[in-house]
Design a protein around this nucleic acid. Structure first.
Lengths: 226, 226
DNA sequence: AGCTTAATCGACAGGGTGTTGAGCGGGTGT
DNA sequence: ACACCCGCTCAACACCCTGTCGATTAAGCT
C-alpha cells in the first residue's frame, strides 16, 4: 500500500530485466516529463494524463510504471537527496582546520544542490502537507542531516572550540529547520525572503553565532584567534 | 475571483443584515464544523459535503456562504493571526528594560497562540503549497512580524546593546523562518522536532546569540553585565 | 507451435468540485 | 391585503480526475 515506488523496486533503481527494455525508456520519459512540467506549473496542476501523454503513453499504462503521481515525485526527490548527501560527504571531517570555511562550504553545497533542483524541492515542500510518503522520506533525510550536524557540534564542544549551551540535537534541529524554511522562501519567491546571492552568508552567520557565539571561531584545538 | 471570503465582506466580519439572521448561524456553524473536523483529520480529507452536512445544510448551500473550502480555512487563519498580533502588542517597547525576558515573552506568546490553534495552523501550512490565497495572506502576516523584529534589532544596535552584523532584515527573516518551521515540526510531530516543553527556550537561545552574540544581553543603555 | 510475461489501452466506476435554475418564506412598501 | 423583493435552500447537472478491470498485442523462451 505504501511500499512500491517503481515496479522493479526502490533503492538502486535497477530497471526491469537485464538489458535496456522498452519499459526503461518509458519510465525515464515519465520522470523527464515530470521535471519539465514542474518548470512550468505547480505539481497539483499536473494530472496523470499530462505525465502519460508527455511520455507518449496512455493513462492506464502510466500505472504500470508508477502507482501514483506522488510516486514520481518521490523518485525525483530520491535523486536530489542522494546528490545532497554526496555533496556533504567529507566536509565534517575537516571542520577543525577552519570551522568558518568548512561550515560555509557545507551550507553552500546544500544551497547549490537544492538550487539546481528547485522545482523538485519546491514541489516536494508543497505536497509534503498532503502526502504521507513524501513526509516520511523527507523526515528520514532530515534526521540524517540533523544527526550529522549534532555530532559535529559535539565534536567542536569537545575540542573546546564551541561553548556548552543548548542540547546539541535541539540546536541542530533549529538550524536545519531554519535553512529549510529560508531556502524555500528564497527559491519560491513568495513572502519575505533573503536574496539568493546573500542566503548562504546569512545562514552561516546564524549558525556560527548559535554554535560558537562568534562569527570567527578558533581554528586549532582550543587556540584563540591570533 | 480571489477577493470574497464571506458573502458580506472580509475584515470586520459584520453579518449580513442588522440583527442576527439565520444565515449568521449557518456561517458560524460551518466554521465550527471545520475546526472540529480539523481536530480529527487532515484538511485535504475533509470535503465540502462534510462541512455542509456538519452545519446542517446541503452542499450547494455551502457555496452561498463561502466560495470554496479554502475560504473557510482563510477565515479561521484570520482569527489566529489577529490573536497573535494582539498577543505580541507592546512587548517591543519594553525590550531595553530586560532584553532576554522580553524576547522570551514575545516568543512564548506566539508559541501559546499557535499552540492553542495548532489544527488551524497545521492545516494552513499544509495547503499553503497548493492555495495561492493562503500563501498570500501568510506572506502578508509574516512580513509584518519580520518588519517589527527588524526594527527591534535596529533599536538594540542603536543603543549599543547588540553588535552590528547582518542586515537586520535578513536576520529577522532567518529567525522568523526558523520559528515557523520549528513550531510546525513540534506541533505536527513528524520528523525531527524539539520537544514542546523546550521549544521556546531553544528558539530564544538562537535568537539571542544571533542578535547579541550572547545569551545574556545587557539591560541598560550600553552597560555591561554587572 | 505453444506458453509465459512485459506492455498497452478502451471503457467503466466512483468521488469530488462548482453551477444552474427553480422554489420557499418572511418582511416591507403602498 | 397584495405584490414583490430578497435571503436562503437544494435537486440535478456537467465536468474533471483518479484508479481498476479485462481484453489485446508483441516478444522471448522451450
Amino acid at each position: 500500500m505504501t511500499t512500491a515506488r517503481t515496479p522493479a523496486g526502490a533503492a538502486p533503481s535497477r530497471g526491469r530485466r537485464a538489458g535496456r527494455s522498452a519499459g526503461d525508456e518509458r519510465e525515464t520519459a515519465i520522470l523527464a516529463t515530470a521535471e519539465r512540467l514542474l518548470r512550468q506549473r505547480a505539481f497539483g496542476d499536473i494530472s496523470i494524463d499530462d505525465l502519460a501523454r508527455g511520455a507518449g503513453i496512455s493513462r492506464p499504462t502510466f500505472y504500470f510504471y508508477f502507482p501514483s503521481k506522488d510516486a514520481v515525485l518521490l523518485t525525483l526527490l530520491d535523486r536530489v537527496t542522494e546528490e545532497a548527501d554526496a555533496a556533504a560527504g567529507g566536509v565534517f571531517d575537516r571542520l577543525a582546520e577552519d570551522p568558518r570555511a568548512h561550515w560555509r562550504e557545507l551550507i553552500a553545497r546544500f544551497h547549490a544542490t537544492f538550487g539546481g533542483h528547485r522545482d523538485v524541492v519546491l514541489a516536494c515542500a508543497q505536497v509534503r502537507g498532503t502526502n504521507a510518503e513524501v513526509r516520511r522520506l523527507w523526515a528520514e533525510v532530515l534526521e540524517r542531516w540533523v544527526r550529522a550536524v549534532q555530532a559535529a557540534i559535539e565534536t567542536e564542544r569537545a575540542r573546546g572550540a564551541a561553548p556548552d549551551g543548548l542540547p546539541a540535537r535541539d540546536l541542530s534541529i533549529a538550524l536545519n529547520s531554519m535553512n529549510e524554511r529560508v531556502w524555500y522562501a528564497t527559491f519560491a519567491g513568495d513572502g519575505p525572503a533573503v536574496a539568493e546571492r546573500d542566503v548562504v552568508d546569512v545562514l552561516l552567520d546564524v549558525w556560527l553565532t548559535a554554535i560558537y557565539r562568534t562569527t570567527t571561531p578558533p581554528v586549532m584545538p582550543s587556540a584563540g584567534t591570533p
